[in-house]
Design a protein around this nucleic acid. Structure first.
Length: 257
DNA sequence: AACGGAACCTGAAAGC
DNA sequence: TGCTTTCAGGTTCCGT
């Protein structure tokens, strides 16, 4: 679920909830999600929360906690006395609040590391922090694959890639090397556009996910196969590449130009 | 080397 | 109504 915008929302919330106050108590459930013994965080104070791509780096006095939200991960704030939530994997209790990690599908990870985590170090430029260099959108692979490669650009997932490709009017199966400079520039622009747009929609402190609480699909083409193209009204189509679905308009995003 | 598929999980929605 | 199938916004491993 979470792509760059949702993780950015989580980072902002964690900054407000964690920075400055010592952790009084840590409780974890054993599962694949909690990959380290987090008890060492007791008594330590968070000094900074950073996001790069879909990863969070949460700095404490003598160690660093890395958090990836997988498909369904979420950080929430509750009263310390509130009962355990469903799929709650970790609870950090501070003075007057408890900060909890919830993840039904359990694809997320909480990992302690002294310095860096290889997964963090391997990340490419972050579109929000570093901007998007169109020259990076190259390779023999399909452009959709390139967009999802976290070492090329960090933070783009299936939704943001789908939206950016539509905005730039580029067919997802075209080879990245085949794009013109103008198309690469349009795609870089589309990435910025969809990230900012999604971020603006994520107004609350907690992440919201499509389909959750019956919320309406806020995206332009993602999840809208069969509906009319917002630009030309032709029915949107869907294709699958390496198991990932892309919704697109066959007229506005032609395979050949 | 590059790419596709399976695996890791649970739950909501669609299909029957 | 209820059981079954399909699908989901991520990543990694494994085989071809």
């Amino acid at each position: 679920m979470p792509e760059l915008p949702e993780v950015e929302v989580a980072a902002r919330a964690l900054r407000r909830w964690l920075v400055g106050a010592p952790i009084a108590r840590v409780r974890t459930k054993r599962s694949n999600v909690v990959a380290s013994r987090l008890g060492t965080l007791r008594g330590q104070t968070c000094s900074a929360v950073e996001r790069r791509g879909k990863w969070l780096r949460i700095s404490f006095d003598t160690t660093t906690l890395f958090s990836h939200l997988g498909m369904t991960g979420k950080w929430v704030e509750r009263a310390p006395t509130d009962r355990a939530l469903a799929h709650e994997h970790a609870v950090f209790t501070l003075a007057e609040r408890s900060v909890r990690y919830v993840d039904p599908r359990a694809f997320g990870r909480l990992v302690l590391a002294k310095r860096e985590l290889p997964a963090w170090t391997a990340l490419g430029p972050d579109p929000l922090l570093d901007g998007v260099d169109p020259a990076r959108l190259r390779g023999r692979r399909a452009i959709k694959d390139v967009l999802l490669d976290q070492s090329v650009l960090a933070g783009i997932g299936n939704i943001q890639a789908t939206e950016a490709l539509f905005h730039a009017r580029i067919h997802p199966e075209r080879a990245a090397n085949e794009l013109s400079d103008a198309e690469r520039a349009a795609l870089a622009d589309g990435i910025g556009w969809t990230l900012q747009r999604t971020l603006a929609l994520e107004d609350g402190t907690e992440i919201t996910y499509l389909g959750e609480k019956g919320s309406e699909n806020p995206f332009v083409v993602y999840g809208r196969a069969g509906e009319p193209c917002p630009s030309c009204r032709r029915a949107l189509e869907r294709i699958v590449q390496a198991g990932r679905t892309t919704t697109f308009c066959a007229r506005c995003q032609p395979r050949r130009r």
